[in-house]
Design a protein around this nucleic acid. Structure first.
Lengths: 169, 169
DNA sequence: CGCTTGGGTTTATTTTTAGATACTCAGCCT
DNA sequence: AGGCTGAGTATCTAAAAATAAACCCAAGCG
């Protein structure tokens, strides 16, 4: 009996298949960053863009969607607005990443790394990531709290404190 | 002058804003896993589901979309079909993850980790991930090739071998 | 004052996605 | 032969999201 099946033994329900998935952290993250353009906006912030016009120019995304996505990212605390002032122009807003946004970097790097491995051009990736201090290539890896590198196969998923079964019917 | 601006100095184009983003590894990964349901299907595979009916029951996703997503994941080599045979029933297909699919785990764990941190229920996450061998909590972190832990701020993104400017239309 | 610029909003159209049935099909079981 | 089951297909409608293009607005400039 594994960590799932010991949760509820006598109901005829299967904890894997009849659990409540509405509080899944993956799904909740995707509710925010899973819409089209959102992660690409963050990519551009990460590569150095900050102005509305920058995003529009490099992404080629419709202005109304861009405005909606930026508003949402600010509401969620992933980006924050500051102002910049070009000499001879009035102050305008710009978008900068917050610590909550920085915490999305591992997820985005995971996507980047997979694309670099499986979907890059024959000559290699379009962008490289390196450690500013030593210049070495940077990537994302799975480790346990004790610092051991962990293979994906050695990860065990078990019900957590907010685990719930779906209400029957 | 940084690693971007030294690419093209005299064209009046800005390498950050006028680069060709069509070969971005992040965007290419999102083309595959960015559709609704796809990552959630992978989550269930990761949690132990493998049959069409399992996915349908736990995700509550329309059958036609589920079939389309599974077909695409198999075509892309992220899942593979095998057969299973319940005693007294005929052989039926099931879906198992491939090495290419396993390589998506860091990206998905990145999403999980962010959701656990910022969007979990007050009592905690619904699912915990731990290292099978030592039981310690598992998460995803950024390191450079030399093994140094890297803060997101210390990542430098530079043009790679497939870097291209957008053709001036 | 009228023009320009950057950063949006509004509105209309097209495309995707969701959701709900209903149908098929192959093999095991009686 | 006829019924049951799991794994799909096919079809349709409704809702949501994406796109496209026109419009607005505030400040600075000549």
């Amino acid at each position: 009996m594994d960590a799932w099946t010991e949760v509820l033994e006598d109901t005829g329900m299967d904890p894997r298949l009849d659990r409540d998935t509405s509080n899944c952290s993956i799904a909740r993250t995707l509710e925010i960053v899973g819409e089209k353009w959102t992660i690409l906006i963050l990519r551009e912030v990460w590569y150095g863009s900050s102005r509305f016009g920058d995003f529009e120019r490099v992404l080629g995304c419709p202005r109304n969607l861009l405005a909606a996505r930026l508003r949402m990212l600010v509401e969620e605390g992933i980006l924050a607005t500051e102002t910049y002032k070009e000499p001879g122009s009035r102050s305008r807003p710009k978008y900068v990443i917050t610590p909550k946004g920085v915490d999305l970097v591992p997820a985005v790097m995971g996507l980047l790394q997979w694309g670099d491995r499986y979907r890059a051009d024959p000559e290699g990736p379009a962008v490289l990531t390196r450690h500013r201090e030593c210049g070495a290539h940077v990537d994302v890896e799975i480790r346990c709290e004790r610092g051991h590198p962990v293979q994906a196969e050695d990860i065990e998923s078990v019900p957590g404190p907010a685990f719930r079964m779906r209400s029957p019917e």
